[in-house]
């Protein structure tokens, strides 16, 4: 199944048998508002902290996805999950009650692609039959961990992005239960072009996305023409432009085919999120609602999903380090 280092092609049919997206209030007022499985009210969803709220969101997403796939938690062989919070507590507390063998992942905002890819590789090994991949983020929880208190009065840079309050879960199964398949994937390298500005993550992550896409094109001898949609995770306005620029220089024109989850989740003009949405929940919720629905109805057949993650921490940032980034790619196809 391995094509070249880091690039995989799956021979076994691995289908997306269930998916669900759960989002917060603001996401539920955005352009995709009718596509989500559930929009939760308020900031805390009845919990005592933002962290618990994130856990709840992730739990609901997993349960809904399993319901849609018509399976129970006991049938799931493995769950692959992670989030942005320190030690991934959004995941560990969210999935605690489900009692599913758990593989924790950290890929920052790239976690959705990472978890789908790892799950697919496990499924291809045929040691497991049913898996779940899930990730989430919460604006308030991320803000207090990475930036400032919520009530702190500051001006956000125009290049900054808004961490989505959202969770997305995917059930993958061996077999042909549905018509959406994980066909291939590419594990990203850690790429650092030296961007240091913590308020410009899109620019920091674009080179990683470009590296992964270019490697995938090269090893599979494909071009943007072979796909209906090349969907990046959360590059936002700034990062999307940078990605297009790099790809152009390498001789690939993405423009028509490219879109970014960070540009789709919010209305950039109306919702004051500056350069767009970000966070693992951003790409997860857009994929697990709008995109997979379109694939389900056959409107999209060939999709490259590239989730990008910035791998710095507040510590490394304060120590003056630049921002390393990673991008993982998953190729989803509407037929075997």
């Amino acid at each position: 199944m391995k094509i070249k280092r880091g690039v995989f092609h799956f021979k076994t049919p691995i289908c997306v048998s269930g998916y669900s997206a759960v989002v917060g209030e603001m996401e539920g007022e955005g352009p995709l508002k009718d596509e989500f499985d559930r929009v939760l009210k308020g900031d805390m969803f009845g919990e005592k902290s933002f962290e618990k709220a994130e856990s709840k969101m992730q739990q609901i997403a997993v349960i809904k996805a399993m319901q849609k796939a018509n399976i129970t938690a006991d049938e799931v062989d493995l769950i692959f999950a992670g989030d942005l919070l320190n030690q991934c507590i959004g995941t560990s507390y969210g999935l605690r009650e489900l009692k599913i063998p758990f593989v924790g992942l950290y890929g920052a905002c790239s976690t959705m692609a990472e978890s789908i890819l790892v799950a697919a590789i496990f499924l291809e090994s045929s040691h497991v039959k049913k898996t779940v991949s899930v990730t989430s983020s919460h604006f308030c929880a991320a803000e207090r961990q990475f930036r400032f208190p919520l009530e702190y009065g500051g001006q956000r840079a125009l290049t900054s992005q808004w961490t989505a309050t959202a969770a997305g879960a995917v059930v993958l199964e061996e077999g042909e239960k549905t018509k959406i398949f994980v066909k291939a994937g590419c594990v990203g390298k850690i790429i650092d072009f030296g961007v240091k500005d913590i308020n410009n993550m899109g620019a920091a992550m674009a080179p990683a996305a470009a590296d992964t896409i270019l490697r995938f094109f090269k090893e599979t001898s494909t071009t943007p023409k072979d796909f209906d949609l090349i969907l990046t995770g959360d590059l936002g306005e700034v990062g999307s432009k940078a990605l297009n620029k790099i790809m152009q220089e390498e001789g690939f024109n993405l423009k028509e085919k490219h879109n970014d989850c960070g540009l789709m989740l919010f209305d950039l003009k109306e919702q004051d999120v500056h350069s767009g949405a970000s966070g693992p929940g951003c790409s997860a919720s857009v994929l697990c609602s709008h995109i997979l629905k379109k694939m389900h109805f056959g409107e999209l057949k060939n999709v490259l999903f590239i989730a990008t993650g910035a791998l710095m921490s507040t510590t490394s940032n304060q120590q003056g380090e630049s921002i390393p980034a990673v991008a993982h790619l998953v190729h989803l196809k509407g037929e075997v």
Partner: peptide, 18 residues
């Protein structure tokens, strides 16, 4: 694209507040 070129590109295209 080289790192230096890219950083220059980012610097040039970064939108600053009005």
């Amino acid at each position: 694209m080289k790192k230096e070129e890219y950083l220059k590109y980012v610097e040039e295209t970064t939108k600053r507040a009005d």
